[in-house]
Amino acid sequence: MSLKAFHIIFVTACTLLAFGFGAWALHSYSTTKATLDLVMAIVALVCGVGMIWYGRYFLKKLKNISYL
């Protein structure tokens, strides 16, 4: 498996983490009403969307490099 293939796995894991963390922070905000929790939730969800965009960009940029 090349670095390209491993990077795609990594980006997938990061995207899942970002959305999971966003959900956790939103849940935390619903109980604490702390602004920091809300900020972390928004940043995490934006990062999740950003990771999806980056993953597509990365696949396009390295389309000529093997997965092996």
């Binding site: 491993f6 894991a13 983490l17 963390f21």
Partner: peptide, 24 residues
């Protein structure tokens, strides 16, 4: 560079699991 990058990705992937398990 690719081999060092593979190791670095592994190290980062470990943290991606460590962070939610320990912190959240």
């Amino acid at each position: 560079v690719e081999v060092s990058g593979l190791f670095w990705h592994f190290v980062d992937l470990v943290w991606i699991f460590l962070f939610p398990v320990l912190y959240l």
